[in-house]
Design a protein around this nucleic acid. Structure first.
Length: 288
DNA sequence: GGCAAGTCCTGAAGGC
DNA sequence: TGCCTTCAGGACTTGC
């Protein structure tokens, strides 16, 4: 969102083109018409959703799903191909760059920026929502507290987990508990807190909840500072890759030594298990 | 063929 | 028996 804001804030969208009628859900028929001619007033974020506010018009609600990204290029920028993580082409800047595959929405601004919404798996979504009812949109209404804002306290976390007999891993992935945590950051936060992903949520309150609260905030702050995590697809709006994946303690490190107890007796190293159909990475010795 | 960064929907299970 | 809540798993799609 910060990358997009740097490019689009204050810009007037000269034209918008929608290249398919649906992503995860059908797209609003008047989306392109609403964007065309609008001035971008600013951005806000709620959980994993971005809201692009248009002056005097509806806001655009954006979710990137699993594989989505926004790609911004300026017409004066030269074409500079880069190689991203695992060999993926991370970006090509400039209007003369080769067209992106799976670019479902394209916007061009009067200031020369071209911004595309690219999403191969189409798990992302776009919608229009009136400014005054943004937070009551059906996708935002049930979200839990923002993990880096005042409302997210140890007490709030304890209350959200109270009486829940589901593994803490699943509870944290539930956006009603805390908004904005995904699989990577839940795995990393549980490792830092020394809490097993299998532990039932109802057994977390007390010192464990305090450790978990601190770990969630620390992981998110570090990840944001590092520009996010780039595995296969993801790049920032400016085409750069995030760097937080270089600091993973557990995610995608199955079979590697635990950084907290390297070489310790009975430590099997980072272990992968499947919970609710999602991969979980953890250290069975360090996380209890 | 299996797996992947997300989340809605459905059905099962259990409590009241 | 019926309603409600909670939870797990399936489904969606494309690329590696």
């Amino acid at each position: 969102m910060r990358g997009l804001a740097a490019v689009l804030e204050g810009q007037v969208i000269r034209m918008a083109e929608l290249r398919r009628p649906d992503l995860r859900w059908p797209l609003p028929a008047h989306l392109a018409a609403t964007l065309a001619g609008a001035r971008v007033e600013g951005f806000r974020r709620r959980g994993k959703y971005m809201l692009m506010r248009l002056e005097g018009r509806e806001s655009v609600l954006i979710h990137l799903g699993m594989s989505g990204r926004m790609v911004a290029r300026h017409r004066d920028a030269p074409f500079v191909p880069r190689t991203g993580p695992q060999g993926a082409a991370s970006d090509a800047r400039g209007h003369n760059a080769p067209p992106e595959a799976h670019e479902h929405l394209v916007m061009e601004t009067e200031g020369g920026w071209r911004v595309g919404f690219v999403d191969p798996r189409r798990f992302g979504s776009l919608d229009l929502v009136p400014r005054e009812t943004e937070d009551s949109h059906k996708l935002l209404a049930g979200l839990g507290p923002e993990p880096l804002e005042e409302g997210f306290t140890v007490a709030a976390l304890e209350k959200a987990l109270e009486g829940r007999f589901t593994p803490i891993k699943a509870a944290l992935l539930d956006q009603k508990t805390v908004a904005g945590l995904g699989n990577i950051y839940v795995c990393e936060a549980l490792f830092r807190a020394g809490i097993s992903p299998r532990r039932l949520s109802a057994t977390i309150p007390g010192a464990r909840a305090a450790r978990l609260h601190g770990a969630i905030q620390a992981v998110l702050r570090e990840a944001i500072a590092a520009g996010g995590s780039s595995l296969r697809d993801y790049v920032r709006a400016d085409g750069e890759v995030g760097r937080f994946q270089d600091r993973f303690d557990v995610y995608d490190r199955e079979g590697q030594p635990c950084r907290d107890c390297p070489g310790a007796p009975r430590c099997p190293g980072i272990t992968r298990l499947v919970q609710s159909g999602r991969s979980t990475f953890y250290c069975p010795k360090h996380q209890r």
